[in-house]
């Protein structure tokens, strides 16, 4: 999907990506599998691009909770919302 953002940006808009990522959350929940590092950070970034700042904030918080290593960057993103 990330490759698609660059190889065919018109087909990988924020909307399309968000739908895909939200679907992945459902799949991960139903199979009780963890999501990869950076997943919620990427989702939060997409939300912020769409002006959905509350959703963005909560996605960045989730990333930070699951992966404390991301705290410095997530706090930076949150402070910019």
């Amino acid at each position: 999907m990330v490759y698609g953002m660059y190889a065919a940006p018109d087909q990988a808009t924020a909307d399309v990506q968000i739908i895909q990522l939200e679907k992945d959350i459902q799949i991960a929940r139903s199979q009780n599998k963890p999501l990869p590092p950076g997943f919620y950070a990427h989702l939060g970034y997409l939300y912020s691009q769409q002006g959905k700042y509350d959703l963005a904030r909560s996605a960045f918080e989730t990333e930070k909770k699951i992966f404390p290593e991301s705290a410095v960057l997530m706090d930076r993103f949150i402070s910019r919302l």
């Binding site: 990869p36 590092p37 950076g38 970034y45 992966f67 991301s70 960057l73």
Partner: peptide
């Protein structure tokens, strides 16, 4: 590059972001 690094057990910053 993210998938193998994550499988190997590392936190990988979201590359596109």
């Amino acid at each position: 590059v993210t998938a193998p690094l994550a499988e190997q057990g590392y936190y990988v910053f979201p590359v596109a972001v």
